[in-house]
Amino acid sequence: MDFDLSPKMMAVLFIILGVVVVFLLMGGSLQQLLSSSIQETVSVKIKQNDTCIVEASDGIPRSINNCPFNVGDNVTITYKQGLPTIEGFQQ
């Protein structure tokens, strides 16, 4: 069987391969990207101006911008394991 790839098909394959390589070099994994969100209650550790820093059980510090809370307040955050971003928060 002889496979002849058109230039368009080769370009698409190279783009997909490039995206995968960049993603892997940045330390990500598809499992982290596609994993379900975790909801956890944490306390505000640091507040600088209007940014609060919290730390979930995975040990990764996360920031909340325009934070209405004070140091020591309990906040429920929604995040993905191993990723530094917060998807949402509530008191």
Rank of each mutant, 00 (worst) to 15 (best):
M1Y: 06
D2C: 00
D2Y: 06
D4T: 08
D4N: 14
D4S: 12
D4I: 07
L5P: 00
L5V: 12
L5M: 06
S6P: 00
S6A: 11
P7L: 13
M9Q: 07
M9T: 04
M10P: 00
A11R: 05
A11L: 09
V12A: 13
V12G: 00
V12T: 13
L13F: 07
I15C: 05
I15D: 08
I16H: 02
I16Q: 14
L17H: 12
L17I: 00
G18K: 09
G18A: 09
G18P: 00
G18L: 02
G18N: 08
V20I: 12
V21Y: 03
V21D: 11
V22Q: 10
F23H: 07
L25A: 09
G27A: 10
G27W: 03
G27R: 10
G28D: 10
G28K: 05
Q31D: 07
Q31H: 01
Q32K: 14
Q32D: 09
L33R: 10
S35C: 03
S35M: 11
S36R: 13
S37L: 09
S37G: 05
S37P: 00
I38E: 07
T41R: 15
V42E: 03
S43K: 08
S43D: 12
V44H: 02
I46F: 03
K47R: 13
N49W: 01
N49S: 11
C52P: 00
I53K: 05
I53R: 04
V54P: 00
E55G: 09
A56S: 08
S57F: 04
S57H: 09
S57I: 05
S57R: 14
D58T: 13
G59W: 07
G59N: 11
I60R: 01
N65G: 13
N65P: 01
N66F: 06
C67Y: 06
C67T: 14
C67L: 11
N70S: 10
N70P: 00
N70I: 03
V71P: 04
V71C: 14
V71F: 09
G72I: 06
G72K: 08
T76I: 04
T76P: 10
Y79D: 05
Q81R: 15
G82Q: 13
L83F: 15
P84S: 09
I86F: 05
E87G: 13
E87M: 09
E87T: 13
G88N: 14
G88Y: 06
Q90D: 12
Q91C: 03
Q91S: 10
Q91T: 07
